[in-house]
């Protein structure tokens, strides 16, 4: 039995990059949504939550179409980078961002809506700038929600299959993530290697989720429920 570490490193790399970018994107988005009062709000929330219920292949299919070199996104990307977006690692990152978006936005949105805004009022009267208020008040008070958002995005990206299969193909070193490699092993009848990857994914997901639940229970979340 010879474990190929390529897909494992690629998966970790994809999950790390995706989670970091997601946190940067989801924070302002969740913040804006938490303060936004408009009759169209449920519409926007539904769009963000779509990947939760949509078959990944649907999302993957539309992304594949959009990433094609003659489609708008695909051609713009190719114009800028000179490379094709579909079947590339960059394409995987973009797909994962959309696929895991609700997992980053939802916890942050919950955290921001439960935050007592009067803390920010106090901070404002104390002369703290918008940036300082966010850094010194919002981030520490919503710390646990940031950790959960990061953890869930990470775990969900690791577990993705359908979207990757549609837009990534199965290129070793480029787009072959663990879940795809596992599928490959099964197709080839190589159950021993499949077992190794499957048990690895299972253990990893379990440990990560346990850690998140544990953190959630003991973490600073109680600050918001004084």
């Amino acid at each position: 039995m010879n474990i190929d570490m390529g897909p494992i490193w690629l998966t970790l790399k994809l999950a790390t990059i995706t989670s970091i970018i997601l946190l940067l994107l989801a924070t302002p988005l969740a913040w804006a949504l938490s303060r936004w009062q408009h009759k169209m709000k449920h519409f926007v929330l539904s769009v963000i939550a779509l990947p939760l219920v949509l078959p990944p292949t649907v999302l993957g299919f539309y992304l594949l179409v959009a990433f094609a070199p003659d489609a708008l996104i695909g051609s713009v990307w190719q114009g800028i980078t000179g490379q094709q977006l579909a079947f590339s690692f960059s394409g995987l990152v973009l797909g994962s961002l959309l696929y895991s978006l609700p997992f980053a936005v939802q916890p942050l949105y919950t955290g921001f809506t439960q935050l007592d805004y009067r803390y920010l009022d106090v901070a404002k009267t104390m002369g703290m700038s918008r940036y300082s208020r966010f850094k010194r008040i919002v981030i520490p008070l919503c710390q646990s929600y940031f950790v959960i958002a990061f953890g869930l995005s990470f775990a969900h990206t690791i577990g993705e299959f359908g979207v990757v299969l549609m837009i990534g193909g199965n290129i070793p070193g480029q787009t072959q993530v663990v879940s795809i490699a596992l599928y490959d092993h099964v197709e080839a009848g190589n159950y021993a290697d499949a077992h190794v990857l499957a048990i690895g994914l299972l253990m990893f997901s379990f440990v990560l989720l346990s850690a998140l639940y544990r953190f959630n229970r003991s973490g600073g979340r109680s600050w918001n429920f004084q």
Partner: peptide, 12 residues
């Protein structure tokens, strides 16, 4: 300098 009825000390 505003002091609210329920103090609002930064809990962290």
């Amino acid at each position: 300098g505003l002091v609210f009825q329920d103090s609002l000390l930064f809990p962290h």
